[in-house]
C-alpha cells in the first residue's frame, strides 16, 4: 500500500497495516538543482510517500512535475537537498543493489548483445562470476531466449525494453523503478508490454514505481496512482485502483470504476496545468 503521509497517517482505505513498516518511506524529500547559469531550480517540493512491499505505484503528471527527479532520488542517482528516503531501515544516499532501474527507451549499450547487456549489472561493481543460469532464466521469462546473441539495433523497440527490464532485474532487486519505459512504443505494443509487465510483477512480486504520461497505462498497472503537479513538483493526489487482477485491456475500460478514476486523474492534471 502506498499512503500519502498526510495529517492522518495511514488513513487510506485497504489493507494498510499500521504496525508494518513501509519498504520505502519518503519524508519531506525535496530537491533543488542549482546551476551557475540558471540559478536555483526547485524541482521537487517536500513530499511524503510510502511504498509498501509488493506495491505497484504509477506516477502521472505533466513535464516538469518532478516525477523523474523523484525517480532519480529513489535510484540514488541524485541526493535530496531536504528530507530523507528510507529503504527498510537504511537511508538511501546512493545507488543500491536493492533498486533496479528501467530507463526510457531501454538505454541498452549498442556494442553489447542482449545477453551481455542483461549480464552487465552482474559484471560491474566488484562482481566476479556472472551466473549464466540467472541470465538464461531472465531471457526465458521475457521470451528473449532466441535473441540472446542479437544486438540491440537488430531488435524492435518492445524487445529492447524487454531486455532493459531483464537488465534491471538481473541483481534481483526488491524495487523496480521504471521511467516511462514504454513511452517510445506504439500503442498496441505498449498494451502488450503492460500485460507482460503485470504478469512479471504478479510472478516476481517486486515493488514497482513506474512513471508514465498515460492515464490508461497508470490505471491498468497500478495499485495506487500518484498524481503530481509541476513548478514546483509536488504530489496532488494518491488514488487507489480497486480493479482485480489479472487485468486485461479488453475489459479494463468497461470496468465500473475505470471511467470515474480516469476522469478524476484527468481533472487533477488539468487543474495542475491551469495553475499559474
Amino acid at each position: 500500500m502506498a499512503t500519502l503521509a498526510t495529517s492522518q497517517p495511514s488513513a487510506s482505505a485497504g489493507s494498510a497495516d499500521e504496525t508494518s513498516q513501509p519498504l520505502i518511506a519518503l519524508r519531506g524529500v525535496a530537491k533543488t538543482y542549482s546551476s551557475q547559469r540558471h540559478g536555483a531550480l526547485r524541482a521537487l517540493d517536500p513530499i511524503d510517500l510510502d511504498l509498501a512491499d509488493g506495491d505497484f505505484i504509477c506516477v502521472v503528471g505533466p513535464s516538469g512535475c518532478g516525477k523523474s527527479t523523484m525517480l532519480r532520488l529513489l535510484a540514488g542517482l541524485d541526493v535530496p537537498t531536504e528530507g530523507r528516503i528510507r529503504l527498510g531501515d537504511k537511508t538511501i544516499n546512493g545507488p543500491s543493489a536493492d533498486v533496479g532501474v528501467v530507463f526510457q527507451a531501454a538505454n541498452l549499450l549498442p556494442w553489447m548483445n542482449v545477453r551481455d547487456n542483461i549480464a552487465l549489472p552482474l559484471r560491474v561493481g566488484g562482481r566476479q562470476k556472472v551466473p549464466e543460469a540467472r541470465i538464461d532464466a531472465l531471457l526465458e521469462m521475457t521470451g528473449l531466449s532466441e535473441f540472446a546473441g542479437r544486438f540491440p539495433y537488430e531488435l524492435s523497440g518492445g524487445m529492447q525494453q524487454r531486455a532493459g527490464i531483464c537488465r534491471a532485474l538481473a541483481r534481483d532487486p526488491r524495487i523496480l523503478l521504471m521511467d516511462e519505459p514504454f513511452g517510445a512504443l506504439d500503442a498496441l505494443t505498449r498494451e502488450r508490454m503492460n500485460s507482460e509487465l503485470q504478469r512479471l510483477w504478479m510472478e516476481a512480486r517486486k515493488t514497482v514505481l513506474l512513471i508514465t504520461h498515460s492515464i490508461s497505462e497508470a490505471i491498468f498497472l497500478a495499485d495506487k496512482v500518484v498524481v503530481m503537479s509541476p513548478r514546483p513538483g509536488r504530489i496532488l493526489e494518491c488514488l487507489d485502483v480497486p480493479i482485480p487482477r489479472p487485468r486485461s485491456y479488453d475489459t479494463l475500460v468497461t470496468h465500473p470504476v475505470y471511467a470515474g478514476l480516469a476522469r478524476e486523474i484527468r481533472a487533477r492534471l488539468t487543474q495542475a496545468e491551469a495553475r499559474p
Binding site: 552487465l120 560491474v124 561493481g125
Partner: peptide, 18 residues
C-alpha cells in the same frame, strides 16, 4: 549511459572500459 553505470555502482575503470 552514465546514469546506468552509476545506478549499478560501477567503478570508474568499469565505466571507462565498458
Amino acid at each position: 549511459r552514465l546514469d546506468l553505470m552509476k545506478a549499478l555502482s560501477a567503478t570508474r575503470l568499469e565505466t571507462y572500459r565498458l
